[in-house]
């Protein structure tokens, strides 16, 4: 199992953000859904090794991350796009991705090829020598995805990756997700349930810091009925599951 989370608890002060959450993910594209404040970003941050759990166990890539050495090894195989993506505005796109490839301790000889490949996959190769600050918001987001995938991570965590992308770019991005999911475990946190419906093999729904649903997009869609709110079957399933969890 690439990600194995048991009884995960995270608190911010007195507020319990994740409350005994269990999650198991393997290779493939996984969607993470939930309303605002459900704990999605906190879960992503724990999996990205940024935030430390207050309770429960987390195993990433088969490691319990008991020490610095294990943490470093996991991080070498990790790709992460945070919800608030920052960048160095004067760097060119290539330099930015290259810089993160270096930070991910990729072998120096592999970096130039890996950077070009990552940029090609996100459709930014023709803008590689442009400065980051000259890109549109959507392009900057794609540069963020490029830095996340440059090291061919075994665990890829993308928090709101499609924010700022136009419809055409979102279609391309979904195709990229499917491609990445062949060899890696990809977890995509999003509000856009149609992205999940199209690109993800499995979906997890978090509410109030707990996992309230896990299954395929089809199973989520079938949980809803005509009386549930939503414009599509999966949206109706989403609202039905949430309503049931809160009942």
């Amino acid at each position: 199992m690439t990600v194995a989370v048991e009884e995960l608890t995270v608190r911010y002060g007195r507020r319990v953000v994740l409350n005994g959450l269990d999650l198991a993910l393997d290779t493939g594209v996984h969607g993470l859904l939930g309303p605002n404040g459900a704990g999605k970003t906190t879960l992503m941050r724990v999996l990205a090794t940024v935030a430390r759990p207050d309770g429960g166990g987390v195993r990433l890539l088969g490691s319990a991350i008991a020490d610095e050495k294990a943490l470093r090894e996991v991080r070498r195989q990790l790709g992460y796009l945070p919800q608030t993506f920052g960048f160095y505005p004067r760097f060119t796109v290539r330099e930015f991705v290259e810089y993160f490839a270096w930070l991910k301790e990729m072998p120096a000889a592999r970096i130039p090829v890996a950077v070009d490949r990552a940029l090609e996959r996100v459709g930014l190769l023709d803008r590689a020598d442009d400065r980051m600050k000259t890109l549109s918001g959507g392009m900057q987001r794609r540069a963020g995805i490029a830095q996340a995938i440059v090291n061919d991570p075994r665990l890829l965590l993308l928090d709101e990756p499609t924010a700022g992308l136009d419809p055409e770019q979102r279609v391309d991005f979904r195709a990229l997700l499917r491609e990445l999911g062949v060899d890696a475990c990809v977890l995509v946190s999003t509000h856009l349930v149609e992205d999940v419906a199209v690109a993800c093999e499995r979906v997890s729904l978090v509410d109030g810091g707990r996992l309230v649903f896990t299954g395929t997009p089809e199973q989520l869609a079938s949980a809803g009925g005509d009386g549930d709110a939503g414009d599509s079957a999966i949206e109706r399933g989403y609202t039905a599951v949430l309503r049931a969890a809160r009942a």
């Binding site: 090794t49 940024v50 608030t84 993506f85 920052g86 993160f100 270096w102 301790e105």
Partner: peptide, 22 residues
């Protein structure tokens, strides 16, 4: 202070290379 201004602190917190290298 650049990482803080550029809001890359979180991203840098996930990389294996020790912070003193950059």
């Amino acid at each position: 202070g650049r990482d803080r201004r550029a809001r890359t602190v979180e991203l840098l917190g996930t990389v294996p290379r020790p912070a003193w290298h950059p």
